[in-house]
Amino acid sequence: MKEVETMKEEWKVFFQLFWTFFKMGPVTFGGGYAMIPLIEKEVVEKRKWLKSEEVTDVFALSQTVPGAVAINSATFIGKRIGGVKGAVAAMLGISLPTFFIVLALGILYFFFQDNPKVEAAFLAIRASVVALIAYAAIKTGKTAITDKSTLGIMIVGVPLLFVIHPIFVILLGALTGIVCRFVKRKLGYNMELEQKNEDYKNHPDYFMGAGI
C-alpha cells in the first residue's frame, strides 16, 4: 500500500511540475533571461518549492550547461523537486507550448511561402532579421567583453568562422579561455571574469543577450 501511495505522490509532482512550466511557456520570448523573474515567482513565491537563494544558484548553474537558460533552469528545478522524472516533466512542460506554436507558424510559412505577397513581406523581414541579429551581437558583445583578452578573442573569432566549422571555433574558444587564464595567473595579472550585471531584472527584453 505504501508503494502505491508514493507512486501516486510522484505522479502528482510530475503533473504539478509539468503544468507550472507549461503555463510559462507561451509568454516568454527568446527563452532566456526574460523568464528568470517568472520562474522565481512561480517556484519561490507560489509553489514554495525552493528558496530564493537556491533559485539564484540554479540560474547560475543553468548557464554552465549548453542549451537555453530557461529550459535548463526548468530542468534543474524539476530534478531538485522530483528527480529524473521531475526533470523530464519540467522540460516537457516548458518546451511543448512553444513547440506547437513554432510548428504551426512553420506549417503556415511553408504553405504560403510562394505567394507573391508573402514573398514580398519576407524580402523586408529578412532585412529586419539582420537587424535583430546585429542587436543581439551588440548586447552579447557588451556582456562578453571584460578586458583586452576577451576583446581579442572576439575579434579573432569572426574571421575564423568564415573558414573553420563553428563547432571547432567554439571548442577553440573554450581552450583559449583555459590557456589564457593559466598564462595570466602565472604572470600575476588580475582578471575581470564577468561583468556584475543585474540588468535583466530592469530590462525584460534582455533575452536578446541570452546568447551566453
Binding site: 543581439a136 551581437a137 552579447t140 571584460t146 568562422l161 567554439i170 581552450l175 583555459i178 564577468e194
Partner: peptide, 15 residues
C-alpha cells in the same frame, strides 16, 4: 576559465 573564452566566442558567432 572555459567561460572566459566561450563568452567572447559566443559574441563572435552572433557577429
Amino acid at each position: 576559465s572555459i567561460f572566459y573564452g566561450l563568452r567572447p566566442i559566443v559574441a563572435s558567432l552572433v557577429i
